[in-house]
Design a protein around this nucleic acid. Structure first.
Length: 559
DNA sequence: TCAGCTGGCACGTTTGAAAGGT
DNA sequence: AACCTTTCAAACGTGCCAGCTG
């Protein structure tokens, strides 16, 4: 199950002549201008940064891991499609029940050690601290961002798996869902509507226990700027709607009757609004209901039919075009690309690939259920303004110790705060994207993060626990379990012998209450902890220029 | 008043199970 | 009995709109 079920693109798509991947390499950032590296956590030692006693040993032992990690390259699948959306200003619907991303996040990974196990996970971090509104066919800043939502991680269900497994074919995060439900029990990524976000892919080397966090743990982070998006509860930009309808197979019901018509409709859409089937249907109903008595009942239907014909490109003129429906490229492309993809489809015959490590991943009891090494960070503004917070906190101080908050006394603004309960909502992603390293080759009008490397942290820091978006009291266990996807929830309930069934979601009812659920995957916890730790690790080296998304963990004790 | 959100709807896709054939 | 193919139905994902809400 390398790919989420339902994924059918073949790896040949990446091998076919002419196919090109937008690729990032943790090691070769400087040599990959097309790559957008971000959030790198390069070992400070590799850059000659000052370290405390013992750090050199840790760095030396991590060298081997770095060798592997830094060779990993990640290519974004369907980069062209992503760019299409990006140029129009990608919007992602968020719903209470959770909505998938489209285009879905799929990558091709190369350069892994075939025998080494890795954990792949995604988080979605705020791209800035603005709230947006769609006005005059373009996105405009509408104020300051609301407090960040719990920065959940989406761990690929195959994790941990060998490099050979990951490299075998596309790695799909198709099942990742976005929600605006602050209390979402399914582990979906929680976002604020009308905010801009940036997904990030993290590749973490698993240790001998199929977890990570040991001394040699290394990781890299890959960011594709074209995958940034603005979360919405309903589409704002008509062009995005059309792109979704045209490209998402699930939205075929809103297309024209056949491809040729669709193509014409696409051409027309540049100049005239496209009236979808559903609009036609609903207009038909409303028109029939509201039509004047002296008008034939078919009149409305006729009008609606005309709309439908226009949608299908049967006519070249449409006088009733509404100005607001005119597509407008609110985010003009900054980079002309000739990238081309071969998008082949095939059934994934190995849909239910069962990894020996999966069982432990799914069933192993949590190794961390206590609040022993998380501390609430200062509020975002403090993070941004406080040099001590950004640059003087070590991972050990932040994460490796249990006990009192005095161990992170260097963290400004946290001393007065009680330690938060351990939770998978230990947001790894809360502070705006600008707060950590990003190398963006291309710039986008609404992006505010720097277009060149300015190193700060590997991962964004925790939000203030006083933030309104924080977990409700006593929800720690609940939150921890939240990291499991619905399928994982069901999988757990089916027991270890169960195969991987087709996923069914049960919004609202779920498959049990939070208190009935089993402990979360240790990997999920570890993922948060590990990545969170790196934020502090790299904060310490804020003055350095990083060119690789790699980091090491020193003195990690996995639970 | 209005921007944003929610719920219900219809449509097409996906997928596992069942049925039938080899 | 085992395997493969086809068919079917239910669940799912999607965009749409009316109505609701703060």
């Amino acid at each position: 199950m390398l790919q989420d079920k339902g994924l059918s693109e073949s790896e040949e798509a990446f091998r076919a002549p002419g196919s090109v991947l937008g690729e990032t390499s943790a090691a070769n950032a400087a040599n990959a201008p097309e790559a957008a590296l971000a959030a790198p956590g390069l070992s400070g030692a590799a850059l000659g940064s000052p370290r405390g006693p013992g750090a050199d040993i840790a760095v030396a032992t991590a060298a081997a891991a770095e060798q592997t990690i830094e060779n990993i390259k990640v290519g974004l699948h369907e980069k062209e499609l992503w760019k299409k959306f990006h140029e129009a200003g990608t919007e992602m619907i968020i719903t209470k029940a959770g909505r998938r991303m489209f285009p879905s996040y799929k990558v091709k990974v190369t350069g892994m050690n075939p025998k080494t196990k890795y954990i792949l996970l995604i988080d979605v971090v705020p791209a800035d601290d603005h709230r947006y509104k769609f006005c005059d066919n373009k996105w405009m800043v509408a104020g300051k961002a609301e407090p960040a939502m719990p920065g959940r991680l989406y761990v690929h269900p195959d994790s941990p798996a060998t490099g050979a497994h990951w490299m075998r074919q596309l790695v799909s995060f198709q099942k990742l869902k976005l929600t605006n439900n602050h209390l979402d029990p399914f582990g979906h990524i929680i976002l604020n509507s009308m905010h801009k976000y940036q997904p990030r892919l993290h590749i973490v080397k698993a240790d001998e226990n199929n977890a990570f966090g040991s001394k040699n743990t290394a990781f890299c982070t890959h960011v594709f700027p074209e995958t940034s998006f603005i979360s919405v509860t309903s589409y704002q930009n008509h062009k995005i709607t059309q792109l979704k309808i045209e490209n998402n197979p699930f939205a075929k019901g809103f297309r024209g009757s056949d491809d040729s018509d669709l193509r014409v409709a696409r051409l027309q859409s540049k100049e005239y609004p496209v009236i979808s089937k559903s609009i036609m249907r609903q207009r038909l109903v409303s028109t029939q209901l509201s039509s004047k008595p002296d008008v034939s009942p078919l009149h409305g239907a006729h009008q609606a039919l005309q709309h439908y014909q226009y949608e299908n490109g049967a006519h070249m003129q449409f006088a009733a075009a509404e100005p607001q429906d005119l597509p407008l490229n609110t985010f003009p492309a900054q980079r002309d690309s000739s990238l081309f993809y071969h998008c082949l489809k095939r059934r994934d015959s190995a849909r239910h690939l069962d990894l020996p490590c999966k069982r432990s991943y799914l069933e192993a009891p949590t190794a961390v259920g206590e609040d022993h090494y998380f501390r609430s960070p200062p509020p975002y503004d403090q993070q941004m303004l406080s040099p001590s917070y950004c640059s003087e906190v070590t991972p050990r101080e932040a994460c490796m110790y249990s006990g009192s908050g005095t161990e992170i006394a260097g963290v400004s603004g946290v001393d007065d705060l009680p330690p938060p309960p351990l939770s998978c909502n230990m947001w790894t992603s809360v502070s705006p994207y600008t707060s950590y390293s990003v190398q963006t080759v291309e710039t986008v009008p609404y992006q505010s993060f720097p277009t060149h490397f300015t190193t700060t942290t590997m991962m964004p820091r925790l939000p203030p626990i006083s933030a309104p978006s924080s977990q409700p009291p006593g929800s720690a266990h609940f939150s921890v379990y939240n990291q499991l996807s619905q399928s994982q929830v069901r999988e757990r309930e089916r027991g270890p012998s169960a195969s991987f069934p087709r996923e069914r979601s049960f919004p609202g009812t779920g498959t049990g209450t939070a208190c009935e659920r089993k402990p979360p995957s240790p990997h999920l916890n570890a993922a948060n902890e590990f990545l969170y730790s790196q934020s502090f690790s790299l904060s310490r080296e804020a003055s350095l220029q990083y060119h690789s998304g790699m980091g090491t963990v020193e003195n990690w004790t996995d639970g």
